[in-house]
Amino acid sequence: MSADYVLESRNLVKAFKGFTAVDDVNLKVTRGHIHALIGPNGAGKTTVFNLLTKFLSPTSGRILFNGQDITPMKPAAIARAGVVRSFQISAVFPQLTVLENVRVALQRKEGNSFHFWRPQRILDRLNDRAMELLTSVGLESFADARTMDLSYGRKRALEIATTLALDPELMLLDEPTQGMGHEDVGRVADLIKQVSAGRTILMVEHNLHVVSKLADRITVLQRGAILTEGDYATVSTDPRVQEAYMGTAAAAEANAQQEETA
């Protein structure tokens, strides 16, 4: 019997003018896994995310979610089906309060999102659930703060809380620890581990220490194509990976630093 895959891509290709950013990628994400997608800058990781969530249309290839072809679906429909993504740059609603950010996500299933004649306070019944979610990411004391005033690390935590509000079957996180201090990195990594219970996570991550701690399986992307796949031990000792990715002086150094501080 074949393994149970939540998400599969078959021969996925994205060609931009003149070059192929994603080249014949066959990705298989096993249910319940934390699956990491790694690779040097410009390898096409974000583009893969954009394709899987249909923020970009593939040049060719198919995407299967729970065995069903979702390639023709619109991005919002894919989100409603249970594949929810975050973005490489922080994606919050800066002028809304922290609580409102989470509530906007909870609101959709209430079925009143087109009700322009009703007062906003009918959304207050979602506040308890929103607070629970904020508490789960340690933001409960910031509920009424304006989101633009949060620190970068807290904004990313808020993004995770907002994504969790949809209770997605599959969460796609694009570099959730990018640009964070060590403390925040640790906190977000723990958070990802915690929220992975009962769902599947596909994440792009540059911090190899985080990858080694969290990932059940790793796919290495290079120049748009899959270089190799496997668990951390397999991938990290693969000479091709070391050459393409970890072998570069800067990456090795960064890696060493992360090991030190961990």
Partner: peptide, 18 residues
């Protein structure tokens, strides 16, 4: 509330299923 979300960050509103 949804309009505000769209104005503030349209891709994010899409990714929340709107």
């Amino acid at each position: 509330q949804v309009l505000k979300a769209i104005r503030e960050n349209e891709p994010r509103a899409v990714s929340l299923g709107y």
